[in-house]
């Protein structure tokens, strides 16, 4: 189903001419339900400072989408904006047909989104289990089945459930942050640089975990520095430069595109 959407509405028109420039974006108004997450003409920043200009972004049900781009391009800002953590300056964010542009950060999670920020993504002073409990704070009781699922996915977390999160390694913290975001079994998981700071052998493991999560039915929107690997694994990718969409296409196509390779993937 996801491929149907991707090919029919986004990729077909320029399948022959390489990745499309995002500025030539043509909308398909006849489609009722285009995607799970729909970001349209988003302008956002911090206080007076505008970082994003006219950003468009879609994630379909169960789709795996990556955002790549140079440092400081505004990738994290896109993620934060979806959760209402930036200053909104224009455009809309829609999730499952509901406008969440003005939804407060603490209410976004109720809509079915989970978010693993790039930095400080665990409660360092809380132990592992308490971190996971906070992931399900909005429920009256800690969902034991979800906890079980997270522990099965990341066995190290169960082994260390009484350890203070701040004393764990970067990789373990990353898994904890992901586990926390999965406690409510979200429809869409936002991951901001999940492989950052991991030892090389862990990077692959992390990407495998993300594949598993996606295959289990959770749509993923991921920002990655490790652009090649991310594009290889995802369904679709965006290249963000200077707070604007530059390219959007299937991951493999971006990976093989001359311009994208030259400018963003180091040849």
């Amino acid at each position: 189903m996801k491929y149907e959407f991707v090919e029919t509405f986004l990729l077909a028109p320029r399948a022959l001419c390489g990745p499309r420039l995002a500025t030539s974006h043509s909308r398909t108004p006849e489609v009722v339900r285009v995607s799970l997450l729909e970001v349209r003409d988003l302008d956002a920043g911090y206080g007076e400072l505008q970082i994003l200009t006219d950003v468009d972004l879609d994630v379909a049900d169960e789709e795996y989408v990556t955002i790549v781009g140079p440092n400081g391009a505004g990738k994290s800002t896109v993620m934060k904006s979806v959760f209402g953590l930036t200053t909104h300056m224009g455009g809309t964010v829609t999730f499952a047909d509901e406008d969440i542009t003005a939804t407060k950060p603490e209410d976004v999670i109720h809509k079915g989104l989970g978010y693993v920020p790039q930095n400080d993504n665990v409660f360092a002073e809380l132990n592992v289990e308490e971190n996971l409990e906070m992931g399900a704070y909005i429920l009256d009781e800690v969902p034991q089945d979800a906890l079980r699922m997270v522990y099965d996915r990341f066995p190290i977390l169960e082994e260390r459930k009484d350890q203070k999160a701040g004393t764990m390694s970067g990789g373990q913290q990353q898994m904890l942050a992901m586990g926390r975001a999965l406690m409510l079994d979200p429809d869409l998981l936002l991951l901001d640089e999940p492989s950052a700071g991991l030892a090389p052998d862990l990077v692959d493991e992390m990407f495998d975990k993300i594949d598993e999560i996606n295959e289990a039915g959770t749509a993923v929107l991921m920002v990655e520095q490790n652009a090649k690997e991310a594009l290889r694994r995802c369904d679709r990718g965006y290249v963000l430069v200077n707070g604007q969409n530059r390219y959007v296409d299937e991951g493999d196509k971006l990976l093989n595109d001359e311009d994208v390779r030259q400018d963003f993937l180091g040849g």
């Binding site: 959760f83 953590l85 407060k104 950060p105 603490e106 209410d107 976004v108 999670i109 109720h110 978010y115 920020p117 400080d120 993504n121 665990v122 409660f123 360092a124 002073e125 809380l126 308490e130 906070m134 992931g135 704070y137 909005i138 926390r180």
Partner: peptide, 14 residues
């Protein structure tokens, strides 16, 4: 404790 530790993270966890 979560909020005193990391307010933004507390927010996004609801």
């Amino acid at each position: 404790r979560a909020m005193s530790d990391n307010e933004d993270l507390a927010r996004i966890t609801g």
